[in-house]
Amino acid sequence: MQRERIRKLESVIALTVSTFAAALGIFWLVFILGSVIVHGAHALSPGFFVHDPTPAGIPGGGMRNAFVGQFLITLFATIIGVPVGILGGTFLAEYARGKRISHYVSMLADIMVTVPTIVVGTFIYAIMVKPMGHFSGWAGSVALAVIMIPVVLRTTENMLTLVPWTLREAAFALGAPYYKVIMQVVYRGAITGIFTGVLLSIARVAGETAPLLFTSFNNSFFSGNMNGPMASLTVTIFQYAMGPYDDWHDQAWAAALVITLAIMIVTIVGRMVIKLRYGKK
């Protein structure tokens, strides 16, 4: 009887501790998002979006340059990375389906998804910044694209595998060549998934800082020139937060709020779409 009670007690304690662990996880999420919202909302103003930075130490000014820079860098990263990722994923899921090479390449892609992004920054520095002799928005875009490719590739592969094989067979039976089957049947069936996957991957790279530090660098002036150094929200947050001025800290928080909100919204909506479309659990 005594032993039974101890076992039950032990169980209750262990389960309570687990519940606390879950509460702790939620607590961190609320704590981090809460601080970002509180500090950021206090510093956010319309001028933040439409003004360029003022010289260091002078209050006022905004981050228009960083918004534009971030947009351009991410846009070109998407233009470079997404087609390569989608086509590569198509190869793995269609032409190389079930073959050994498909298995190895997707495993490699899985590893590359998690490889330290700062290493990608040093790589792009060596192959683009050093030969060109200066930092550039292009280098930043290529660095982000390199990070994006394996993510998009894996998502596409997964989404294409979900399209039932019989659909393809039906098209084959009509005499369609494989590329036509892929473009007109398979892609059509997987479009929601691929599109959402692309959105999620954009959200992922938009928050990257480390690969931009030595590629697009930073620029305190407004610039639409992809061939020169370019400001981005994330690198600006780093610079401002480490800087000595209170005004800079406020602006860093404001930028943090904007980028966090944008990424959270895209991520939540994207995951919900995928869940509604594919998850039946």
Binding site: G25, L29, I32, G207, T209, A256, I263, M264, T267, R271
Partner: peptide, 20 residues
């Protein structure tokens, strides 16, 4: 909600860690 923690950019962890 726990997985959302993974979606927060690392720079946000940085600035939060530094100031808060």
């Amino acid at each position: 909600a726990i997985e959302l923690l993974a979606a927060i950019p690392s720079i946000i962890y940085g600035i939060w860690g530094f100031f808060t």
